[in-house]
């Protein structure tokens, strides 16, 4: 095994595949995104800083990134659980549950927002029972987290699921033969194998939640300083025909997400080495 690891050149196709990857990435993603940076560059440094650090904008970062973080944590925990249950156990309704996981992708975000509001607003299916208990979901920051959890769930389930499918039962058997308990096998064998994909799922679910707009505005309440998300402020700027202000805030969001994704990807690399 060790011998092969150093022979990187055995497999063919590195040049063409990497070349195409970089080319397609540039055309579809990088060049268009650079338009954002160029547009923002029209602002003076002082204007840029004052735009992106205005109190309302700062409050919106807190709401957006905070809620996205909570949603991603919820999704990581329950997403892994769901993926595990779907792959490993047989129970009535399993296939339907499996199909259901993709729903947040297929449902247009606006429909998702309207539907969640239908369920969790004070006169909604679930909301009417929560209201007497003093729990308000719709039109509060909780509603934002709810919408973000909804749209981010498939990311975790669908990144972890194929990895669980691929885990070789022999590995678990070997652990048992060596005298490991089920819990030890889980902790020492399975979890390290899943960790990279869990981190990926977490990162994707987080990143997606930060940018989400369509479903959140229907359930957030959108009150300045309290439940106003950053993408809404971008729209607000655009409504005033202030393209540069809008792209400035967008750049900050972009940079922040990029850095967080980078950190998570590095963490993942580290976790893989740890697993080896």
């Amino acid at each position: 095994m060790k011998l092969f690891k150093h022979h990187n050149n055995v497999l063919p196709g590195f040049g063409p595949t990497l070349g195409f990857t970089v080319f397609y990435l540039s055309v579809i993603v990088l060049i268009p995104l650079s338009a954002l940076v160029f547009k923002t560059a029209g602002l003076s440094w002082g204007d840029f800083i004052s735009t992106v650090t205005a109190p309302r904008v700062l409050a919106s970062y807190k709401v957006t990134f905070g809620s996205a973080m909570i949603a991603a944590v919820i999704n990581s925990i329950f997403g892994v659980l769901v993926a595990w249950v779907l792959v490993r156990y047989r129970f009535p309704g399993r296939r339907i549950a499996d199909a259901l996981v993709d729903l947040p992708f297929a449902l247009p975000t606006a429909v998702a927002g309207i539907t969640l509001a239908t369920i969790y607003s004070p006169n909604g299916w679930v909301g009417q029972f929560l209201e007497p208990l003093g729990i308000k979901v719709a039109f509060t920051p909780v509603g934002i987290t709810l919408a973000m959890t909804f749209i981010g769930l498939p990311f975790v389930v669908r990144t972890v699921q194929p990895v669980i499918e691929e885990i070789e039962v022999e590995l678990e058997e070997a652990a048992v033969c060596l005298g490991a308990s089920r819990w030890q096998t889980m902790k020492r064998v399975i979890f390290p194998m899943l960790l990279p994909s869990i981190l990926t799922g977490f990162a994707l679910s987080f990143a997606r939640a930060v940018g989400e707009y369509g479903s959140i505005i229907f359930i957030a309440g959108n009150m300045p300083m309290v439940s106003e998300i950053t993408p809404l402020l971008i729209i607000t700027k655009l409504e005033q025909f202030d393209y540069q202000g809008a792209t400035a805030i967008a750049c900050v969001m972009l940079l922040t997400s990029f850095l967080m994704l980078l950190v998570i990807n590095l963490l993942q690399k580290w976790s893989r080495r740890y697993a080896d």
Partner: peptide, 15 residues
Amino acid sequence: LITLIDLPFSVSPVI
């Protein structure tokens, strides 16, 4: 490179 590939996820749809 991986992070750049992820990037479209984190870009707000509006953007």
